[in-house]
Amino acid sequence: MSTRSFVSLTLVILLNTCVSAQAIGDDLSTSESEHVSRQLPLGELGRVIELGREIVENTKDHPLSKAYVGNSLNCTSCHLDAGTHPEAASFLGVAAAYPAWSPREQRVITLQDRALNCFMRSENGIRPPVGSEVAIAITAYITWLSTDQPIRMNPDKPLGPNHVRPLKDSVGDIDRGKPLYEDYCASCHGDDGLGSDDGPPVWGDKSYNDGAGLIRVPKLASWLKVAMPLDNASLSPQEALDIAAYINSHDRPKFNLQEHLPTDNQAGVFNGEAKE
């Protein structure tokens, strides 16, 4: 074999090897992104992350968070499986989108801002102090669920990479929604919408107020489409829209921002131990 032929053959082999290696790398990357294995850090950080998960799952009853909740919802009522559901208001990867521009607040907000604002709206309660134990624990847990995700701060909206995608259609019908609610939802959320042991209230004094994001029919419908019925999400887009229209046609608490803000001396706390 001539020297030129040998060099050409070597280059071909090297090229094929690089292509194969890249393909394997792509497969591994896809696999890892879909099946991320996370382990809690050791020590105090791991404890706080676990505390955050407990608060997310038991927000209305947890000793650290219940004073800030004004209804019967937990964070996981919307962020299914404690935020690990890949589609239903997922926490997966969301920390990588912050700080982000918020059209509602008309400013750039942090992940902590976003989590605490949910207490005012979805939880119909009082915004916990910035830097408080409950605030740090929840955001530590959400950040842990974004382990190894690339940072891509969102200049448009405070949404992460796995946010609920809007439906193409946006109009629901209340009259069509009523029998659909009775068929698909009432067994868990009650005929009166006030909840049961199997599901939280979807209207009334103990549900989200009219300042929450889910008060918008298209937003609620897009969530219903990927989340309900629980463990068997099977609604068509139109069914989701009709049910959302029916649910949001009922009375619920009115949102008044000033009633949900902490007192001035509780807006933020210093959570460190002062040392000289």
Rank of each mutant, 00 (worst) to 15 (best):
1 M>K: 01
3 T>L: 04
3 T>E: 05
4 R>L: 07
4 R>W: 06
6 F>T: 00
7 V>H: 07
10 T>M: 05
12 V>A: 02
14 L>M: 03
17 T>A: 12
18 C>Y: 08
21 A>T: 04
22 Q>R: 14
30 T>W: 15
31 S>T: 02
33 S>T: 14
35 H>L: 12
43 G>T: 02
45 L>P: 01
46 G>A: 05
49 I>N: 10
53 R>Y: 13
56 V>F: 13
58 N>T: 05
59 T>N: 00
60 K>W: 12
64 L>N: 14
65 S>A: 15
71 N>Q: 11
72 S>A: 12
72 S>E: 13
72 S>I: 11
73 L>G: 11
73 L>N: 12
75 C>F: 11
75 C>K: 10
77 S>P: 05
78 C>R: 12
79 H>C: 12
80 L>E: 01
82 A>R: 15
83 G>L: 10
84 T>Q: 11
84 T>N: 13
85 H>L: 07
86 P>N: 05
87 E>L: 15
87 E>I: 14
89 A>E: 04
89 A>Y: 05
91 F>P: 13
93 G>T: 00
93 G>C: 02
93 G>L: 02
94 V>E: 06
95 A>F: 09
100 A>H: 07
101 W>S: 03
104 R>F: 06
109 I>Q: 01
111 L>C: 08
112 Q>I: 05
114 R>S: 11
114 R>M: 07
119 F>H: 03
119 F>Q: 00
119 F>M: 01
120 M>Q: 09
121 R>H: 06
123 E>F: 08
124 N>E: 00
125 G>L: 00
126 I>Y: 09
131 G>E: 01
132 S>G: 09
136 I>M: 14
139 T>I: 06
139 T>Y: 02
141 Y>G: 06
143 T>F: 04
145 L>H: 03
148 D>F: 13
148 D>T: 11
149 Q>N: 15
149 Q>A: 15
149 Q>L: 15
151 I>F: 08
151 I>K: 09
151 I>V: 11
155 P>S: 09
158 P>G: 10
161 P>F: 14
161 P>E: 13
165 R>P: 08
170 S>Y: 14
170 S>I: 15
171 V>F: 11
172 G>L: 10
177 G>L: 03
181 Y>S: 01
181 Y>I: 02
184 Y>E: 01
186 A>N: 12
189 H>A: 08
189 H>W: 10
190 G>I: 12
191 D>R: 15
193 G>D: 07
200 P>W: 00
200 P>Y: 00
201 P>V: 01
201 P>I: 05
204 G>I: 07
204 G>D: 03
206 K>N: 05
206 K>Q: 06
210 D>W: 13
211 G>P: 04
214 L>K: 10
215 I>L: 11
220 L>D: 02
221 A>P: 15
224 L>T: 05
226 V>T: 06
226 V>C: 06
231 D>G: 14
232 N>P: 05
233 A>L: 10
234 S>V: 05
236 S>G: 12
238 Q>F: 06
239 E>V: 14
243 I>R: 10
244 A>H: 08
245 A>T: 10
246 Y>I: 03
249 S>C: 01
249 S>F: 02
250 H>E: 00
250 H>K: 01
253 P>D: 06
253 P>R: 09
259 E>A: 03
261 L>F: 07
263 T>H: 06
263 T>F: 10
269 V>L: 12
271 N>Q: 02
271 N>H: 05
276 E>Q: 00
276 E>V: 00
